[in-house]
């Protein structure tokens, strides 16, 4: 590519967008829809993932010490628990602190617990955090096998259910991405095909006077890249606004799912949208122009 031609390529690409206004609008709209649907599915996957992770990493596992153990004996278990693979943190909760926590939970009804401090029925316990959710079941089994641990409470069932949901959503979003990607490629390629068909005579002339395929193709690639990037930017803006709106009106109040904060993933989404749209756009234009170059 010659530097003198770069301005020409851009000028021709932009001109073509406006001369096929309706198809350009159609391809941008389709691309936006595809990106939004895929993005939404992805956000759901991320939110479910976040929910699962926060359940297990924020101390979802509670291991209760045998009630015959003294506080010192119970504290001595900490090292054994820390040595279990996949355990990232251990927090010892003596029974007096457990009682205090219970008082806090009871709030104004905490008077019901008055007097228990003299004969505390609660057991010493540990709040345990894990690293990898995929080894959750094994980690619980390892904790249960520690001598002195009488009982282990966890959200194993909830975590497993959420894992299934996450996997389904993951598959759905991947399928959506492939399906909608194909739709986007077809629409973009049709837009470019229309532009190419409109200029087939011109392309034939260009070929006869010595233009390389790259020279002919470049304005069409620029056209599709501009269309796809405009679509990606609009889709990103809409995704951000729509997601934040949905979170603000209700989903955040459903405690089961912890919705991901869009601002933490915005750059990934922007990059993902732009690069996906770029690939589909370029692919669409290359596919559509190929047959017109055989002169």
């Amino acid at each position: 590519m010659n530097r003198h031609n770069i301005v020409y390529f851009f000028r021709e690409g932009i001109k073509s967008i406006f001369s096929h206004g309706f198809m350009s609008l159609a391809s941008v709209t389709v691309m936006i829809t595809c990106l939004l649907l895929t993005g939404t599915a992805l956000l759901l996957v991320l939110s479910v993932n976040l929910t699962i992770e926060s359940m297990v990493t924020l101390g979802d596992i509670r291991a209760y010490v045998d009630e015959t153990y003294t506080r010192e004996e119970a504290e001595a278990l900490e090292n054994k628990l820390r040595m279990i693979e996949n355990v990232s943190g251990v927090d010892f909760i003596p029974n007096d602190r457990a009682l205090e926590e219970m008082r806090d939970e009871f709030g104004t009804d905490s008077w019901l617990l008055d007097g228990l401090e003299y004969d505390n029925p609660l057991r010493h316990s540990y709040r345990i955090m894990v690293v990898n959710i995929d080894e959750y079941d094994q980690t619980i089994a390892d904790i249960e096998s520690v001598q002195g641990i009488a009982d282990v409470h966890s959200s194993r069932e909830s975590v497993n259910k959420l894992s299934v949901i996450r996997n389904i959503l993951g598959t759905v979003s991947l399928s959506l991405m492939v399906l909608l990607g194909a739709v986007a490629v077809v629409i973009i390629s049709n837009t470019i095909k229309l532009a190419t068909f409109d200029r087939r005579e011109e392309i034939a002339i260009m070929k006869m006077i010595g233009a390389t395929d790259g020279f002919i193709r470049f304005p069409f690639i620029i056209e599709s890249v501009i269309l796809s990037q405009v679509a990606a930017l609009i889709a990103f803006g809409l995704q951000w606004l729509a997601y934040n709106y949905i979170v603000s009106i209700g989903l955040s109040s459903i405690e089961l799912i912890e919705m991901i904060d869009f601002s933490t993933v915005k750059y990934y989404f922007l990059g993902g949208f732009m690069s996906t749209a770029f690939v589909f756009g370029v692919l669409g234009s290359i596919i559509s122009i190929r047959k017109f170059l055989k002169v």
Binding site: H4, E201, A204, I205, M206, M208, I209, G210
Partner: peptide
């Protein structure tokens, strides 16, 4: 190459039609 039906690009001016052939070979402005 010169054709019977001229094969000029209608949307371009005379100057642009000729200029275009030089762009293809990467000539400077």
């Amino acid at each position: 190459i010169v054709f019977q039906d001229f094969r000029l690009i209608e949307r371009k001016t005379v100057y642009e039609n000729v200029e275009f052939a030089m762009r293809i070979v990467g000539a400077s402005p």
